[in-house]
Design a protein around this nucleic acid. Structure first.
Length: 481
RNA sequence: GGCCUGAUGGCGGAGUGGUGACGCAGCGGACUGCAAAUCCGUGCACCCGAGUUCGAUUCUCGGUCAGGCCUCCA
């Protein structure tokens, strides 16, 4: 099977054909760095990271160029700098670092390129120049505006006509606009705000222009895939298309447009006024990033996703099951050698193929996740009658396959011990080991009251004990919620 | 007001014109000193109405409900 992508522009699922298989290009709109990223911001990151992984496996790691911008010039950044009485760069540096740390925690690979808007002002100004030259933009009162009348395809991506937009307009139209739908390419800065000199007066770029310029400079037109949140379709992506195509007389800006669905919090939109903004920065202190990633990928990327405490609990338990199988396999295999003729085994190969097929079918992560469970189930079955010597090869094979399949989705990449005990600090681990040892002694002596009392103590430490004939293992109880 | 999505079991969530994956939770049993983990077994759903069809959860139309965009927004 080959990759098929649902393309917003054509409205259909189309087979993916890159312009150049040795240089596959993908651009995703990144953060405006004025605050911590919330869980809704994380959805496109995780979704397109999964696509990035799939593309890299298909075309080769060096053949996929994934650009995700950092918007570091913006009204909200300016406001934050004023509010906190610090230079703009203090804000942007701080939240760029935080963004990296948070997305790393979700298992997202870093993009190939992360262009910053402020490093591409020249390209933006050059683009404005070309737009004016091509009669697709005009200067007025210190602003430069895009002339939407100059672009017949305006509205095609979002499926709306300019007339519809005017009919539904709820904002006052700035007097210097020729047409209500025209949008800003360049605008004057207020005193104290960052500004750059230009032929149209000192000022700063409009947000839509930033992405167009960075796409051109970092990837070159047309790009293969352009992604982002559903809410960016209009006006942001619509405007990007208009600018780039008019600036360069380009017939195509991006060959495939992908948009992830919105995330709601307990069925409500996340908003500051509702006070339900959940920051990744806070969440990863409470639950493993992998469980958050799982929750984000548990629904198809185009479907809406309702974020609830229960979703996180279920996600974590699902991962417990898979890591449990891996742990048991590791325990059994121990130092034993096995023959890793992994990928030629037809039954394993079929299961791996099913997972790949699911992802290649417009990134059907729920189906791919089901495939992970298929592998896990098969691994469990082998573990349950592992008396046979030759079963070790099979177990090793399935164990490796599960980890390999997981890597495609960004799961199962840590040691099971780390997954189950990683939340414990060294003090706790020492304490637990001591209690566990004492309990093993008690059990040997068949002193059940003492054994049970110690287990209660461990439970109080949020530790779950699992006895086995030789001794016992432990894991931290789930505390997600 | 304009434009656009979606509605599957207790929960999450795929999918299909012909008896509805997968996961979480539940229930019964096995194992265990008792548990946990694991194993075996098991109950439960396709929003409403009409149409097309031999047959619709799947296609069409209408309705209801929910959500999104039209303004910064993932």
């Amino acid at each position: 099977m080959t990759l098929a992508i649902h393309d917003t522009l054509s409205g259909e699922k189309r087979p993916f054909t890159p312009r150049d298989p040795s240089r596959v290009t993908m651009y995703v709109c990144g953060p405006t760095v004025y605050n911590f990223a919330h869980i809704g911001n994380a959805r496109p990151v995780v979704v397109f990271d999964t696509l990035f992984r799939l593309l890299r496996q298909t075309y080769g790691e060096g053949a996929v160029i994934y650009a995700r911008n950092i918007t570091d010039v913006d009204d909200k950044i300016n406001q934050a700098a004023i509010d906190q009485g610090v230079p703009i760069s203090v804000i942007t540096d701080r939240f760029t670092d935080a963004y990296h740390a948070d997305m790393d925690a979700l298992g997202a690979l870093r993009p190939t390129i992360e262009p910053r808007a402020t490093a591409h002002i020249d390209a933006m100004l050059a683009m404005i120049g070309r737009l004016i030259e091509n009669k697709a933009a005009y200067a007025a009162e210190g602003h430069v505006l895009f002339d939407t009348q100059a672009f017949p395809d305006y509205g095609k991506l979002s499926g709306r006509s300019i007339d519809d937009m005017i009919a539904g307009a709820r904002v006052e139209v700035a007097p210097y606009k020729r047409h209500p739908a025209d949008f800003v390419l360049w605008k004057p800065s207020k005193p104290g705000e960052p500004e750059w000199p230009s032929a149209w007066g000192a000022g700063r770029p409009g947000w839509h222009l930033e992405c167009s310029a960075m796409v051109e400079t970092t990837l070159g037109l047309p790009i293969d895939i352009h992604g982002g949140g559903h809410d960016l379709i209009f006006p942001h992506h619509e405007n990007e298309i208009a600018q780039s195509r008019c600036a360069d007389h380009a017939p195509v800006y991006a060959n495939y447009w992908m948009h992830n669905g919105f995330l709601t919090m307990d069925a409500e939109k996340m908003s500051k006024s509702l006070g339900n903004v959940l920051l990744v920065h806070d969440l990863i202190k409470q639950v493993p990033g992998e469980a958050i990633r799982w929750a984000l990928l548990s629904a198809h990327y185009r479907a809406p996703l309702d974020w609830t405490g229960d979703l996180l609990v279920q996600s974590r338990k699902s991962l417990d099951g898979l890591y449990g199988a891996l742990q048991d396999a590791n325990t059994l295999l121990g130092e034993n050698d096995y023959d890793p003729e992994v990928w030629d085994q037809p039954q394993v190969a079929a299961k791996l193929t099913a997972i790949r097929d699911a992802l290649e079918d417009d990134l059907n992560t729920p189906r791919a996740i089901a495939g992970l469970f298929e592998l896990s189930k098969a691994l469990r079955a082998l573990l349950n009658d592992a008396g046979e010597r030759e079963a070790l090869n099979q177990i090793g094979l399935y164990r490796d396959a599960l980890v390999a399949a997981g890597s495609l989705l960004g799961f199962l990449q840590v040691d099971p011990e780390t997954w189950f005990q990683g939340g414990a600090d060294d003090d706790l681990k020492t304490k637990v080991e001591a209690l566990l040892q004492a309990r093993i002694e008690a059990r040997k002596a068949k002193d059940w009251p003492t054994a049970d009392r110690i287990r209660d103590e461990l439970n109080a430490l949020n530790v779950v004990v699992m006895d086995n004939p030789e001794g016992a293992t432990w894991r931290l109880a789930d505390s997600a919620g």
